[in-house]
Design a protein around this nucleic acid. Structure first.
Lengths: 235, 235
DNA sequence: CCCACCCAAATTGCATACAACATTGCTCAT
DNA sequence: ATGAGCAATGTTGTATGCAATTTGGGTGGG
């Protein structure tokens, strides 16, 4: 007999990782915010051991900077790093569109349509949801290739792009992209490989050119984490 | 005043990571070999905590498979994963050649020439050194782009390619590639972007098509690790 | 003879304790 | 007043101990 739900999902360390990741992507923990192990552990109801493991994972993903003996902090990528990041995205997401062009199942097309609809719905509402959905479109596309490595890389790059935009982007930069997502989907369904790739490149370029001015943020870590703790079944 | 050598290099956890990674890439620890935390800790002279951290890093790199409650093992990628991996390599290493074409400094050209010379020198000698050098050529090229993310991705893919070749490649498959490396360098120096990219693609394709038959390996973990412990200043 | 069950050994999951290091603020001499 | 040195504090680095889970083997019933 098979156990139905063993323990939440796959270990509490993973849960901590997801909670922190979401907190960063939602900009509840902005770039540069320090991440002391015991404060996080307290806020999430776990020990430093698990926090540490999560931080290692996050640093491996480039979302967290891990300075020896000096603690962890949300990464603060430079503008130059952002440039490199996006040129890498170009190469990878072009591969995504080339792979997917004309090969989307109807189920996948449906899912993408629904996702875009959700993006539109979120445009006037919660801005953090809007940002997250915009990124998830790219992640979703990448995962549909069936190439797990490619999907993981794109996911990492999209995540880090959020940091770049948080640092250097204008407040509502991600909203206008929804129509471009729709166009890309159209080209993919039509099987027009070249057009899909070009639209994707153009789309990414238009994101990069929106990067100009910085902001600043601060927050108490325990407060910012409390809601994420609940959503991962921690605390 | 600058501290000359703080502590070996950058923390013992990193040392464990490097030791295990090299052991895997040298095929001292072949695909599928189990990696119990305390055996490794004993072999390397550190506690399970550090081993655990290293294993998390390695699993994040795709070199180690981490099954919950069931321990870690050197990854055993499927042939299909290998295919995905190489198509991702195509996209990324094409970007490398495009970025580098006509932009190599003379110092970099020298370094690459020396590396190729080392590859040739190792052809008749140690086969594990030969394999490692062949991979490091690609990593070195990627690092010269100055794009840290790109370099890290290529490094990961090259590492995992070693696993693929260990599982499905013929024994001496990597030796014949040295001349191709030389040709690629020539095209890069000449600034012929298209030719460089084509040579790289062709080179990678010729590697993939050498993948056919499997082997099997076994070893006591502690013995296999002892030499790597010394080289990292552990034990 | 085979299968289900259960117990023992080994291994991972996680927390906690202690040691090492970095940082901050204070003291004291100049 | 000012800067060097030092003590106090907070944080990270690492080891170890205990609980929880898996695994393999043995035992008894069918």
């Amino acid at each position: 007999m098979r156990r139905l739900e063993k323990k939440g999902n796959g270990g509490r360390a993973q849960a901590v990782h997801r909670a922190l990741k979401r907190a960063i992507l939602d900009q509840a923990l902005g770039p540069g915010v320090k991440l002391p192990e015991d404060s996080i552990g307290e806020g999430l109801g776990v020990s430093r051991t698990l926090v540490r493991e999560a931080l290692v994972r996050l640093s491996e993903e480039g979302l967290v900077e891990l300075r020896p003996n000096r603690g962890a902090a949300v990464a603060t990528p430079s503008l130059e790093e952002g440039q490199d990041l996006f040129s890498t995205r170009f190469a990878l997401e072009r591969l995504v569109t080339e792979t997917l062009s004309g090969r989307l199942t109807t189920a996948q097309q449906m899912q993408l349509k629904e996702h875009i609809a959700a993006e539109e719905a979120a445009r006037s509402g919660d801005s953090s949801a809007s940002i997250r959905l915009a990124g998830e479109f790219h992640t979703l596309l990448a995962s549909m290739t069936g190439n797990a490595t490619l999907a993981r890389f794109v996911n990492e790059l999209v995540s880090r792009s959020s940091l770049i935009l948080a640092l250097y982007g204008r407040p509502h930069s991600s909203e206008c992209a929804v129509s471009e997502h729709h166009e890309i989907l159209g080209a993919l369904v039509a099987g027009d490989q070249k057009r899909a790739a070009n639209l994707m490149i153009h789309h990414l370029e238009s994101i990069t050119t929106r990067a100009v001015l910085p902001r600043d943020r601060h927050a108490d870590i325990r407060d910012a984490l409390s809601s994420y703790a609940a959503s991962e079944g921690l605390g």
